[in-house]
Write a protein that binds this DNA or RNA. Structure first.
Length: 489
RNA sequence: CGGGGUAUAGCGUAGUCCGGUUAGCGCGCCUGCUUUGGGAGCAGGAGGUCGCAGGUUCGAAUCCUGCUACCCCGACCA
């Protein structure tokens, strides 16, 4: 049929692309590298937003909104920050079009801006320029702000959700009176990201810090969470940066201490993006389609009626109404798929493709026996249950599915996490995919050489990682701790 | 930005080499009837600036030139 998926084994990235499009999550747009997020995909993103937003607010953060445009001069105040983003910025130079006299339009050269505007690739610059006015005293701190926004990074090669020129994200920007407090904030957010990834998306993540090479432009330390995808490649799922006083100094943001001394503030910034949608798809889905964790599924239960005559459909509808009401009181989202244009087999396949966690089927046989067929998307198992307490049973099953998806992903990661102690072993392991823990001499030169030769980068240096004597896999120099290598998206 | 490829209906494609009827097919779509426990069947129907702009020719989807977009492989990245 038209909706056949490429299998993961045939071509993993083709499978991913097919899946995103056929499950109706997103599609390519007329604009290079920019996608249209379709209602079903956006509904998942909204669920992600809601969960994260709640966690941010529970930890004292507030939402605000800053401009899309950043004056070019603002953007160049923090040197390493510019360097990191300069190559991928969209720039606004004019503010008006005019007729070209041939039925088209051209840029009106008379409408040239005095100063070009940069479409934000991230908002540190405009936000820190604003914070200068907001912060005077230690009483104004900490300042804990988050913004939900779109940003633009002019990427060379793009892939739906994983890397698009424009993407949606949240970016937190906080200001603190002490270094310690700022570091604690960066760590707190990392914990929130980790919790969200594991408990909502159902993806186990490693937590750690980035090597200086992989650090955010303008940060003193970058904390991150990394997940392993089914093809053995790593995906960075979120980052939290300790920015030191870099932006405070660049934008002259100072506060008066209790002792009436003028000090620069300490900063963090942190973000997760629609890339999480990519992680969600790649971590759990199979050759039949999407597998959504119940906590993020826009539709948690779909009910497919099976009938011959209109009277049967009406009898089924009556039963279904009862079930639907009960499920709704338990905050479970239900869809009754009573479309007359498709047969049950088609609907089963379609809802599997879309990853709905639980499917109920109800037909004349069930009406007679007081039963209902229940099918799990994660295991594709079917079972006929007594109708009594069905809402209760579904409620429990959703919890079970959420857990099973996570356990499966965790088992996969464990099976694909390796230790390497020799260079040959290392190269061999990296080739096969997965996380590879190995010793590293802590020099950027070695890191770059390893990447050149194996395409594997240091995904993270584990926080509180086990201290053990070892020798760098590449240079043989002494090392005190293993770091995590992998090929990455 | 470098290398390779593609562009024909909503989607997938045939035709292009070697110019010549009304551009063909599958899926999807619309109407009707029959169907409905794992991707329904039959009948009828709608839908095309052949990526864009020039050129060659009696005649261009087909040949030539330029442009644009997209895909794959590298360098950049959440």
């Amino acid at each position: 049929m038209a909706k056949e998926l490429t299998t993961r084994e045939e071509n993993y990235s083709q499978w991913y692309n097919d899946l995103v499009i056929k499950a109706d999550l997103a599609e390519n747009s007329a604009v290079r590298g920019s996608m249209v997020i379709k209602p079903y995909g956006y509904a998942i993103w909204e669920k992600m937003q809601a969960a994260l937003d709640t966690m941010f607010k529970e930890t004292g953060h507030q939402n605000a909104y800053f401009p899309l445009f950043i004056p070019k001069s603002f953007f160049s105040k923090e040197a390493s920050h510019v360097e990191g983003f300069a190559k991928e910025c969209a720039v606004v130079t004019h503010y008006r079009l005019k007729n070209d006299g041939k039925g088209g339009v051209i840029v009106d050269e008379d409408a040239k801006l005095e100063e070009e505007l940069i479409v934000r690739p991230t908002s540190e610059a405009i936000i820190w320029d604003t914070y200068r006015k907001w912060i005077q005293s230690y009483r104004d701190l900490p300042l804990l702000i988050n913004q939900w926004a779109n940003v633009v990074r002019w990427e060379m090669r793009t892939r739906l959700f994983l890397r698009t020129s424009e993407f949606l994200w949240q970016e937190g920007h906080t200001a603190h009176s002490t270094k310690d407090e700022a570091i604690k904030e960066a760590e707190l957010i990392l914990d929130i990201y980790g919790k969200f990834a594991e408990e909502w998306i159902g993806v186990p993540v490693l937590k750690g810090i980035k090597s200086p090479n992989e650090r955010f432009a303008g940060a003193n330390e970058t904390y991150c969470i990394e997940a392993l995808m089914q093809d053995g490649k790593a995906l960075q799922c979120g980052t939290s940066h300790f920015l030191g006083q870099n932006f405070a100094k660049a934008f002259d943001v100072k506060y008066l201490t209790k002792e009436n001394k003028l000090e620069y503030v300490w900063a963090t910034s942190w973000g997760v993006s629609t890339r999480l949608m990519g992680a969600l798809v790649m971590a759990h889905s199979d050759d039949s389609g999407l597998v959504l964790p119940p906590k993020l599924a826009p539709i948690q239960v779909v009910i497919v009626p099976i009938y011959r005559k209109p009277e049967q459909l009406e009898a089924i509808r009556e039963k279904v109404d009862g079930i639907t009401k009960e499920l709704k009181t338990k905050n479970i989202s239900v869809k009754f798929d009573d479309r007359d244009t498709y047969k049950p087999g088609y609907k089963f396949a379609e809802w599997e493709l879309k990853g709905v966690p639980i499917r109920l089927a109800i037909g004349p046989r069930d009406l007679e026996n007081g039963t209902i067929e229940i099918a799990r998307r994660d295991t594709l198992e079917k079972e006929v249950l007594q109708m009594a307490d069905i809402a209760e049973k579904i409620d429990h099953l959703l919890v079970k599915i959420q857990d099973n998806i996570y356990q499966k992903a965790l088992a996969f990661r464990d099976e694909n996490t390796f230790y390497a102690d020799t260079w040959d072993e290392f190269k061999d392991r990296v080739e096969k995919g997965g996380f590879v823990l190995a010793h590293w001499d802590e020099t950027p030169e070695t890191e770059v050489k390893i990447k050149d030769e194996t395409k594997a980068s240091i995904r993270l240096i584990p926080i509180d990682g086990k201290q053990e004597e070892g020798k760098c896999i590449f240079s043989g120099a002494p090392s005190k701790q293993r770091v995590v290598f992998a090929r990455a998206y």
